[in-house]
Design a protein around this nucleic acid. Structure first.
Lengths: 334, 334
DNA sequence: GACCGCTGAGGAACCGGTTCCTGACCGTAG
DNA sequence: CTACGGTCAGGAACCGGTTCCTCAGCGGTC
């Protein structure tokens, strides 16, 4: 901005010998403009290298065409994929996405959102880690908000969530059939809503004879890597990571320790990021509907942007994907 | 935007019984305002829930505080990491990042850039795939531009590039010492500048006794996965992927085929994405200085945004990281 | 030939801030 | 007591567009 003596709409109007309203009409392809004049204006605009100021358009149109997206961590392929989904949909409707990465720090989220809201027509929050009251406070921002992957109690905002209970039950049946009766869950970040949901889904899905323990981990590869030994120490024959990154981190650590997956210990995860398919063994995982997340988020937000009401919530379902990382329980004694 | 009867600066001025210029001064913490009035205005603003319109500020300030970043593919951890680096730096200077993902489609880049430029104070292009003339044409946008990871011939824009020749030479020596004399390079996307650079670095680094072939692949896991068999058919004892994703995709395919890495065939990549470390075997790779990319890009762009000239270019260097995916050449006969 | 209606361009208000310029009011010094 | 300088609030211009309103001019109809 503030370039060298900007070419403004007035320069073009002068060059074409018309008023600036006419230039505006031509640029916006409003019907009912004399074709002769259209040509004159187009020509003048091209000659001067005129490009309308987006900022000025934003102000007078009362919209920016930007939707802000908050993600906990862009390096997590799950969010990168969801973001791609949102961007793709938004783009079709002429919107662009302004991304804020909170780096898994709940306190960073509010800061970012305040900034985002000032430039955006709407916001999409992916798995926000912030506290419930903070989340509720966002209503004051006076901007359409859609929440992805966190059911806001009291349904504050339209949201698209996933129901993984069925898929988790499938996972538990699968593990049970393989003979696993001691499971260990590697927990996610303290503030991730999905963490609690996954944990309780597991708890309510296991057979009574099965023991389920947990060990603190996090959301990234490193976290799973670091937590693997502690999980091993619980005596579990199958580790279940908060997400695929944690699970893959654990697998890496196990292999470093010379413990074979799945021969000696099984591992499963959540999300079905692309790497889950391309590692060996492939990772058994509860797959999130990633592209649908983005599509649905946009579908909820879009009418909202045009002032129309929108359905409050949409629930997708997860599915179990069985790959090589889960196998028959080994009879190791540890 | 266009919320329910926006609270504007005028509402606040009226409520506080002052002029809008005074409200503006208070909100911007201009010195020389009567403390009494500051309190009155602050109070009124809080009571009304006033939040200044970012759009209006953008227009009158002549800047948006947004920098646009173009990436070929957000799902590629390399770019996600670079982006995180840029965001982190930019944030410190009070800028936010508007991301456009071109999905590896060169023609999508121009479209996106035109849009980005209208809302941004500056642009950072990461490994742009577009043609040279198109790239040159961007100068017309009249916006500060910094290019990452593609040396624009004629140094059109300030750029931060990487010199991987030394590291590639290291790789070649490493492979030579392991006895590999037949290498196969899995190529990147046709329009990726890095592809040509890597290929020629390899060609000029190999010993004369070494044979180097190539097979078309791409930039993603799938591409490596799909190209693995063709690469195998060349009789090479070591595959070198255009990037780590391609290399890992190839590894996955090899393992599916029951071919052990590195016992039967070695594999190496470029970038050192986080997964390169956490797969087994770990991937030998030519590591890019990912965080430095972001930092340097910002360091070049930042003064530029304030109208100051900036140094034209900055070259970082890559380093070889040896992990388990490269091993002694096997004496298979195929 | 006068009237009516429609097309299409110009003028002005507006979007919501920032900032320059002006001038009132105060205190101090001559 | 007056002149002068400094502080600080208000008024107005400005950022660069969009859009409503008005009205000129033209063609068609009775």
């Amino acid at each position: 901005m503030r370039r060298t003596r900007q070419v403004t709409i007035l320069s073009v109007a002068a060059a074409a010998g018309v008023s600036k309203s006419t230039v505006s009409r031509v640029m916006n392809e409003t019907p009912n403009v004399d074709p002769q004049i259209v040509i004159r204006v187009r020509d003048a605009a091209a000659r001067l290298g005129y490009r309308p100021s987006g900022t000025a358009q934003n102000l007078s149109r009362g919209r920016t065409g930007i939707v802000g997206v908050l993600v906990p961590d862009l390096a997590n392929p799950l969010f990168a994929t969801i973001l791609k989904g949102i961007s793709a949909e938004a783009e079709q409707d002429g919107y662009r996405t302004l991304v804020a990465d909170a780096n898994e720090q709940p306190d960073a989220e509010l800061r970012h959102l305040n900034e985002l809201a000032r430039q955006s027509d709407g916001l999409i929050l992916c798995g926000p880690r912030m506290s419930m009251p903070d989340l509720a406070g966002l209503a004051d921002l006076d901007v359409p908000i859609v929440v992805v992957n966190r059911k806001p109690a009291g349904s504050l905002f339209p949201s698209v969530t996933v129901d993984s209970r069925e898929a988790v039950a499938d996972l538990c049946r699968h593990l049970d059939a393989l003979g696993h009766t001691r499971l260990c869950y590697l927990t996610g970040p303290a503030h991730a809503a999905a963490d609690g949901e996954r944990w309780s889904a597991l708890k309510s899905s296991i057979r009574s004879r099965t023991k389920l323990s947990r060990v603190a981990a996090g959301a990234m590869l490193d976290d799973g890597h670091a937590a693997a030994e502690a999980a091993l120490a619980t005596g579990a024959t199958c580790l279940i990571g908060f997400n695929d990154l944690v699970a893959l981190g654990a697998v890496a650590r196990l292999q470093e320790l010379g413990i074979a997956v799945p021969d000696q210990i099984s591992v499963a995860g959540f999300d079905d990021i692309v790497y889950a398919r391309f590692t060996s063994p492939g990772l058994t995982t509860v797959a999130m509907p990633k592209t649908e997340f983005g599509e649905e988020a946009w579908r909820l937000l879009s009418p909202y942007l045009h002032g129309r009401k929108t359905r409050r919530t949409r629930t997708l379902s997860a599915t179990l994907i069985i790959r090589g990382s889960t196998g028959l329980r080994s009879h190791r004694t540890n």
